[in-house]
Amino acid sequence: MKQILYILIALFSAGMFAQNQSLFEQGNQLYNQGKYAEAIEKYKAILETNNHSEALYFNLANAHYKLNHIAPSIFYYEKALKLAPEDQDIKNNLAFAKNMTIDAIDTIPDAGFSKVIKKITDIMSFDDWSKVAVASVIIFVLLILLYYFTYSTNKKRLAFITSNIFLFIAAISLLIAFHKYNLSQKDKPAIIFAQETVIKSEPNNRSQELFRLHEGTKVQILDTINQWREIKLADGKTGWIEKEDIKEL
Rank of each mutant, 00 (worst) to 15 (best):
M1C: 10
K2P: 08
L5P: 01
L8G: 00
L8Y: 12
L8N: 13
L8D: 13
I9W: 10
I9D: 12
S13T: 15
A14R: 07
M16R: 01
Q19C: 07
Q19E: 15
N20Y: 03
Q21R: 14
L23P: 00
L23R: 06
L23N: 10
E25K: 12
E25N: 14
Q26K: 10
G27P: 07
G27H: 09
G27Q: 11
Q29V: 08
L30S: 07
Y31A: 13
G34M: 03
E38F: 11
I40S: 00
I40V: 15
E41Y: 09
E41S: 13
E41H: 12
E41Q: 15
K42A: 10
K42H: 06
K44C: 04
K44P: 00
A45S: 15
I46L: 09
L47D: 04
L47S: 08
E48A: 14
E48N: 11
T49I: 00
T49C: 09
N50E: 15
E54R: 11
N59R: 06
L60C: 02
N62F: 04
Y65I: 02
L67N: 13
H69D: 04
P72S: 06
S73T: 07
I74H: 00
F75M: 03
Y76P: 02
Y77Q: 02
E78F: 05
K82Y: 08
P85A: 07
D87M: 03
D87S: 08
D87I: 01
N92G: 05
L94S: 02
L94G: 05
A95F: 05
F96W: 04
F96V: 05
A97D: 05
K98C: 04
M100G: 02
M100I: 00
D103L: 08
D103S: 13
D103V: 08
A104Q: 14
T107K: 11
T107S: 09
I108E: 09
P109M: 06
P109S: 05
D110L: 15
A111F: 00
F113S: 01
F113Y: 12
S114M: 04
V116P: 00
V116L: 14
M124S: 13
F126Y: 13
W129D: 06
V134R: 05
A135E: 09
S136R: 04
V137L: 07
I138C: 10
F140E: 03
V141H: 10
L143P: 01
L145E: 09
Y147E: 10
F149A: 07
T153V: 15
N154I: 14
N154F: 11
A159W: 03
N164T: 10
F166G: 03
L167I: 05
S173N: 08
S173R: 00
L175N: 12
I176F: 03
S184I: 12
Q195W: 10
T197V: 12
K200H: 12
S201G: 06
E202T: 03
E202P: 02
N205Y: 14
R206L: 13
R206C: 05
E209T: 15
E209F: 07
L210C: 06
T217R: 05
T217N: 03
V219R: 02
W228Y: 15
E230L: 06
I231G: 01
I231M: 03
K232T: 14
A234R: 11
D235F: 09
G236L: 03
G236D: 07
G239L: 04
G239E: 01
W240S: 03
I241P: 01
E242Y: 14
E242C: 05
K243G: 02
D245S: 14
D245R: 06
I246A: 02
L249P: 05
